[in-house]
Simulated scan of single mutants.
Amino acid sequence: MKFTVLIPVLAAAAFNSQAFTLTSNDIQEGSRMADTFAFQGFGCTGENLSPQLSWKDAPKSTKSFAITAYDPDAPTGSGWWHWVALDIPSSTNSVKQGASGHLKQVREMENDYGAIGFGGACPPKGHGMHRYQFTVWALPSEKLALPENPSNALIGYMLNANALDKATLTATYVSE
């Protein structure tokens, strides 16, 4: 008898659960990003603006968020980190276009160009299409525990080890 009562309760819980999602007014899943979001330098002539991002349905126990932008197709053997923003307050559910460098109470880390904040898309000419994975991470603490001057690989490891959930939007870019 307990079994028949339990099934509807579990089914209702699964039916009502919402997935943590990430959307953008500026970039779309699987589509080429505009030059607005390309790097200015390294042979690229973009505007180097971070895209608008919005997220919803984070786990209830979320205490902070992080945003990363990562290119797994970079010819480095380890990808390329375009943006790492940490300790975003849990009351935040979006960032505006060009927000990098203007985010209050947020710790923006050095990208793989060697600058703090967002560094736009810039695959090597002739290298073909690259994917840019924009991920928002829901975290269980207000600050991610990291040593002084951590590498982006260590940050990525700590995000994966600590995340309650994550939502990713993958856009593309080709240098012409």
Results as ranks from 00 to 15, higher is better:
83 W>E: 06
167 A>M: 07
79 G>F: 10
43 G>M: 07
87 D>W: 03
156 G>I: 07
118 F>H: 00
82 H>G: 15
26 D>M: 04
133 Q>Y: 01
106 V>M: 02
155 I>Y: 07
96 K>P: 00
82 H>I: 01
85 A>M: 07
46 G>I: 00
158 M>C: 02
64 S>R: 00
146 L>S: 00
65 F>R: 09
147 P>H: 05
156 G>F: 09
90 S>Y: 06
137 W>H: 03
77 G>S: 09
103 L>R: 04
105 Q>L: 11
169 L>S: 12
77 G>N: 09
174 V>G: 02
89 P>M: 04
93 N>L: 08
149 N>D: 12
24 S>L: 05
149 N>M: 10
61 S>C: 02
9 V>H: 03
40 Q>M: 05
173 Y>G: 00
101 G>Q: 10
77 G>E: 11
125 K>P: 03
166 K>Y: 09
103 L>N: 04
49 L>H: 14
54 S>F: 08
127 H>F: 04
69 A>E: 14
11 A>D: 03
125 K>E: 06
70 Y>L: 08
98 G>C: 06
145 A>C: 00
171 A>C: 12
160 N>F: 00
171 A>H: 08
124 P>D: 10
107 R>V: 15
121 A>R: 13
49 L>M: 14
88 I>R: 11
55 W>F: 11
129 M>A: 13
69 A>G: 03
110 E>A: 09
107 R>F: 09
127 H>Q: 05
119 G>A: 14
101 G>P: 13
68 T>Y: 08
39 F>Y: 15
169 L>W: 08
28 Q>N: 14
44 C>S: 15
164 L>I: 01
106 V>L: 04
97 Q>G: 10
39 F>C: 03
23 T>G: 06
64 S>H: 04
68 T>V: 13
130 H>C: 01
126 G>R: 06
35 D>T: 15
110 E>D: 02
174 V>P: 00
26 D>F: 02
162 N>C: 01
136 V>Q: 02
8 P>Y: 07
145 A>R: 04
138 A>V: 05
34 A>Y: 07
148 E>Y: 07
51 P>N: 09
135 T>N: 09
115 A>N: 15
59 P>S: 09
130 H>G: 03
114 G>V: 08
169 L>A: 08
110 E>P: 01
126 G>K: 02
47 E>R: 12
2 K>S: 12
101 G>E: 04
128 G>S: 10
14 A>I: 13
75 P>E: 13
77 G>A: 06
88 I>D: 06
59 P>I: 04
13 A>Y: 13
58 A>V: 03
13 A>C: 06
147 P>Q: 10
5 V>P: 00
91 S>Y: 05
175 S>Q: 14
30 G>E: 13
65 F>I: 05
143 K>N: 05
121 A>D: 14
165 D>Y: 11
24 S>I: 04
15 F>A: 15
40 Q>K: 14
175 S>Y: 05
119 G>R: 05
83 W>C: 04
110 E>T: 15
41 G>F: 06
155 I>H: 08
142 E>L: 03
101 G>N: 08
71 D>V: 03
156 G>T: 06
119 G>T: 13
